[in-house]
């Protein structure tokens, strides 16, 4: 420990004396403080300006503008005019929109359940059998390289009625006449879910694998010595450790999956009788095909609010889980 300097006997004024010696009136002091504040602000603004300008122009203002325009009609080709809550009344009344929200929610729930279930299962398999870990990681990750629209194209080749490999196999082996996956209603949604599972599986496997490998080994060994086996060890030790990770993954997955658009646009374009129409597809159509901007904006804001609420719900659950642990 170094000795602290002896301020009181060093000749440097301290306490009341120091204030008295400081030849600044309170006004001068305030002026200097504000000058310093300004100097700090200008120094920081050089760093902040490039990002903040872009952020304002393309994120903050658009959010506000979307909310404002949801109370207006027109505004894209023709001048906008105020219609009050008219759009919102239509939003809650529109049967097409109801269908679209149901489709999207169904997709989100099914896709997330299947992908997360498979991913946790595969991750624990890889975690328990370390041989070839890297090979499996790389190959399972591979589909993520394809953009969603390429994924949709690739799966169109898989599921095509005439030359899709799935139909070829069922025809060749069982003599069935084949399923027109994209032309019928429940199967079209399943096809879209298949594409999203194909693209997302590798990512979530890696995600949960990283989580599983962060489970402390001592805990697992202690449980092993205490006689806990396989599934029980997984549920009692790994699941609590993965819990915050899982809830966080849920948040990301919800935000990403509610924005489903690309594969729908490529594979079915809304599907047989709106069977695969999603929220973003609806917004896109209203905005750029029908010029019905009022409904497009209120649906956008609805999507924004819905996603935010779901996110907050997940974070609330996350917070509650943490509180219980402590």
């Amino acid at each position: 420990m170094s000795k602290s300097p002896d301020y009181f006997n060093s000749g440097v004024p301290t306490g009341q004396e120091a204030w008295a010696k400081l030849e600044l009136s309170s006004q001068e002091y305030r002026k200097n403080a504000s000058r310093y504040r300004l100097r700090y602000l200008t120094r920081a603004s050089g760093f902040l300006a490039p990002y903040m300008i872009l952020w304002l122009a393309f994120l903050a203002i658009p959010v506000g503008w979307a909310i404002f325009l949801s109370f207006n009609d027109g505004g894209v080709l023709d001048p906008r005019y105020w219609v009050g809550f008219d759009n919102w009344a239509r939003t809650f009344d529109d049967s097409e929109l109801t269908q679209v929200v149901i489709n999207t929610s169904l997709f989100v729930v099914l896709a997330i359940t299947i992908v997360f279930g498979l991913a946790i299962f595969l991750a624990s398999l890889i975690n328990n059998h370390r041989r070839g870990e890297n090979f499996f990681k790389v190959t399972l990750y591979f589909p993520l390289l394809a953009p969603p629209i390429l994924g949709a194209m690739i799966w169109h080749f898989m599921l095509h009625f005439d030359f899709g490999i799935v139909n070829l196999i069922t025809r060749g082996l069982f003599g069935w006449e084949g399923v027109n996956f994209l032309g019928k209603n429940p199967t079209a949604l399943f096809a879209i879910i298949a594409v999203e599972i194909w693209r997302g599986l590798g990512f979530w496997v890696l995600f949960y694998l990283a989580g599983l490998q962060s489970v402390p080994g001592e805990l697992l060994e202690a449980a092993k010595l205490d006689g806990a086996r396989g599934l029980r060890r997984f549920i009692r030790i790994s699941v609590p450790v993965l819990r915050p990770l899982f809830l966080f993954a849920l948040v990301i997955a919800i935000i990403m999956n509610f924005q489903l658009f690309d594969s729908v646009k490529i594979l079915t374009d809304g599907g047989p009788r709106m069977g695969t129409a999603t929220i973003v597809w609806f917004i896109y159509r209203r905005m750029f095909a029908f010029q019905d901007t009022g409904l497009a904006f209120s649906a956008s804001v609805g999507l924004l609010i819905g996603t935010m609420l779901l996110t907050l719900l997940c974070f609330w659950l996350l917070g509650r889980g943490r509180k219980r642990e402590s």
Binding site: F58, P62, A296, S300, T307
Partner: peptide, 18 residues
């Protein structure tokens, strides 16, 4: 706080902005 804003929700106003 804008981290959770879905890109698709601000698609239309961003288009107008540009």
């Amino acid at each position: 706080s804008t981290l959770m804003v879905p890109v698709a929700a601000v698609l239309a106003p961003t288009y107008l902005m540009v």
